[in-house]
């Protein structure tokens, strides 16, 4: 599924960016990297999305959101990854519960 299809409040892991190489590169520099955990904060006008990643809020237009592939993740896993900005394997829930 894509970020565009994701309901508000859902936690997802970014799995792929189907954008041009230079745009993908810049998004990675900005912190939107495959592996990053995101929470869909808001749906906005014209299909835009506001997502939270590692404490930052990103506003993403509808077309771009439709080109970002995501996998929904469970809430416990999301708690573990609230501080994960990408590319690193998620910490386990056991670590969180420590």
């Amino acid at each position: 599924m894509t970020l565009r299809d994701t309901p508000e409040g859902t936690h997802v892991r970014l799995t792929g960016l189907r954008l041009s190489d230079d745009v993908t590169f810049r998004l990675r520099e900005m912190g939107l990297r495959p592996g990053a955990v995101a929470r869909v904060v808001l749906h906005t006008a014209f299909g835009g999305r506001v997502v939270a990643v590692a404490g930052s809020r990103y506003a993403i237009d509808a077309q771009t959101a439709a080109l970002i592939d995501v996998d929904p993740i469970g809430s416990l896993d999301a708690r573990a990854d609230a501080g994960t900005s990408g590319d690193r394997p998620a910490r386990t829930s056991a670590v969180v519960a420590r």
Partner: peptide
């Protein structure tokens, strides 16, 4: 960390200012 679904003040304001 605080529960990830916790909305910050900015999130709540954006709920209005960026509302569809």
């Amino acid at each position: 960390p605080p529960a990830p679904a916790t909305a910050s003040l900015s999130d709540r304001v954006d709920g209005v200012l960026l509302h569809p």
